[in-house]
Structures are given as C-alpha cells and as structure tokens.
C-alpha cells in the first residue's frame, strides 16, 4: 500500500548543506534557548563581578556559598518547575516552608525524635500541596486562587505553631548545615547535597518517567492529554503534592540553615522561586522548561544577591534587579512564543 511513499517531510529536513546540523539543533531544541540564555547571563554575571572586584569573586568559597545560601530556594524552585510546566502556579511555597520549618523546630523542642519529626514536616508540606491540587483538579479552582488559600493556611498555621522563633538544638539538624565536605577550598554541606539530589531526582522524573512526560503533555494541551488517555487528573494533583513536599523539604533545610524556625520566614519567597524558574527558561504558560534551567535560575538569583552584598549596595536593589530580569525574560519568552506561533 503506502510503504512505497518515500517523500521526506518536515521542515527541518528540507534544509540542505552544512547548516543542517546547527540549524537542526536549534530548531529541535528551541525550548532550550531560554535556558542557554540564563546560563549566558550567569556566566556574564560571574565574569562581570570578577572583573569589577578584581578577581575576588570567583573563589571556591564564594561559589560553594552560593549553593549553601540558596539550597532552600533551589528546592522550592524544583517543586515549582513541576507546577509551572503543567501551566499552573503555586503561591503557597514560601508560607509552607515557614510552616514546616517552625513545625519541625517546635516538634524537636518538645522532644520528638528526629526520625519522626522530619517525616512529619515533609508530610505536612505534601498535605497542603494535596489540598491545593484537589481544589485545582476536582473543584476547578484556578491554581492561583487555590494556592492562595494554601498560602493563607500555611502562614496562619505557622503562627498557630508559634508566634516567635524557636531555636533548634537537635544535633542531627544542625549537622545538615555545619558539616562541610571539602576539597581544596570547595565545600558542600548536607543541605547542599539534599538540594542537588532534589534537582537530580526531579530531572529524572521529568524526563524518564511517564508521569514526567504527562506533566509536559498537560502543559502543552490539557485537553489533548486527556483525549490521549493520559492520567491527567492524578498528575495534576501530584505536581502540587510534589511542590508542597519540596516546600516541606525547604522548610527543613532553611531551619537547619538558620538554626531556628521562624513563622515570618519566606514571606515573598514564592515570588523569588517563580522568578528563578522563569529566568531558568520555563514558560509560564506551561509545556516547556527544565529543572536544570530552574537550578541555573536560582544561581543567577543567588549570584546577583552576592554581588549586591559585595558591592555594599542596598539589598532593595535585589528586588528591583530580579524584577527587571524577570521582565526581560518574560518579554523574550513572548517573542519566542510569538515567533513559533507565526511559524506554525
């Protein structure tokens, strides 16, 4: 029958000559472009700071501190990436992080063993995520509003647990922060390892499991994903659970980092996480993005913060610069989307 038909199709294959491989690469990986752009900005920031500070910036100590200081944000961004790739958004993560952090500190202060306290706070984060997911999926609430309820709930609960900060004395928690595995001037803490593990596991799930591919399919077209018979409902709830779980984990890491739980932690951190994810090349409309990109986004964020500290400028510049960067990336994304729509 039709096996004789050999005409080759597809625009990328119509091109001939030496430019094929290069152009083909960019056509095929156009989704990666924003992530490359983020990487370029990161390198530029490094180079600029290095030149400006006359070689005092790119030191093993500074780079190591980058991971240490931003471990909690990295974990939040990982969870947020899942949500945003489905086309949703999770505003609750900063508050959930505060809630789980203070909850952990309180439980430990009351003598609960670490082996129980940690699973409890991780589950606490996941449960809030579950509530959000169920609202989104089964009650058709916009992700924005559902996660807003999660934000209120977690922030309020954080203050219910304690109105003031609680110091953590538990050695196992402090160990997460104080231990430094070092090579030369480089070091990494267990919190840093946890964050990198989160990135690795998330990247694995996103790219090598059916659930991960379903996340992308939902972001591309939810109705198509449903008509294709994919497990849309389960996956959509799951991404919020993952995000909540990550927020719980971030709460643990932040508590270890600061040595205390504090109910006012993480006000506005959800915005930082969203900004990092977007800067890392994830499309806010869903369907495109990489966990690795979000990691780069977090490092861009962290580097700007470090540079501002080094320059002795006011931290308020941080918010302005991140806002500006966010804007830049959004405009670039719009241009890319507009172009690809024009092509299709």
């Amino acid at each position: 029958m039709t096996a004789t038909m050999t005409r080759s199709e597809g625009r990328s294959e119509k091109r001939t000559g030496a430019s094929v491989s290069v152009q083909g690469f960019f056509t095929r990986h156009s989704a990666l472009m924003p992530t490359f752009a983020a990487l370029a900005i990161l390198l530029l920031l490094f180079a600029g700071a290095e030149a400006f500070l006359r070689g005092d910036f790119i030191t093993p100590r500074n780079i190591s501190a980058l991971l240490l200081d931003n471990a909690y944000l990295l974990i939040l961004a990982v969870g947020m990436t899942f949500v945003i790739v489905t086309g949703g958004i999770d505003l609750s993560v900063g508050s959930v992080m505060a809630f789980t952090g203070i909850l952990g500190a309180k439980l430990l202060a009351e003598g609960m063993p670490v082996a129980i306290a940690i699973p409890v706070i991780l589950a606490g984060g996941a449960v809030i995520g579950l509530i959000i997911g169920v609202l989104v999926q089964y009650f058709n609430v916009q992700p924005f509003i559902a996660s807003l309820a999660g934000l209120f709930l977690a922030r309020g609960l954080a203050f219910v647990v304690s109105l003031s900060s609680i110091k953590v004395e538990e050695p196992a928690i402090l160990w997460l922060q104080s231990t430094r595995f070092s090579v030369g001037g480089w070091y990494i803490t267990p919190t840093g390892i946890i964050a990198l593990l989160a990135v690795a596991v998330a990247a694995f799930v996103m790219h090598l499991t059916r659930m991960g591919r379903t996340v992308y399919a939902i972001g591309g077209s939810e109705s198509s994903a449903r008509l294709m018979g994919l497990k849309v409902a389960r996956t959509k709830v799951m991404v919020y659970v993952i995000s909540g779980f990550c927020a719980g984990l971030a709460g643990l890491v932040l508590t270890a980092y600061s040595g205390a739980g504090y109910p006012r932690n993480g006000i506005g951190t959800e915005l930082d996480a969203i900004a990092a994810v977007v800067i890392g090349g994830t499309l806010l409309t869903g369907g495109r993005g990489y966990v690795i990109g979000s990691m780069i986004g977090v490092f861009v964020y962290g580097t700007i913060k470090t540079i501002i500290t080094f320059m002795g400028a006011e931290q308020s510049w941080m918010q302005i610069i991140v806002g500006a960067l966010l804007l830049l990336f959004i405009v670039v994304q719009r241009a890319i989307v507009a172009r690809s729509e024009g092509r299709g």
Binding site: G268, Q319, V322, G323
Partner: peptide, 19 residues
Amino acid sequence: QPIIATLVLMLAGRGVALL
C-alpha cells in the same frame, strides 16, 4: 499575562519603596 506582568512590579516595587 497579567499575573506575570504585575508580578514584576510586585517584586520590584518594594525595592523601589525601600530605596
């Protein structure tokens, strides 16, 4: 998208106020 567009100012606005 409005959420994102206004997020920019939501982030940067407080920085401006602090300045």
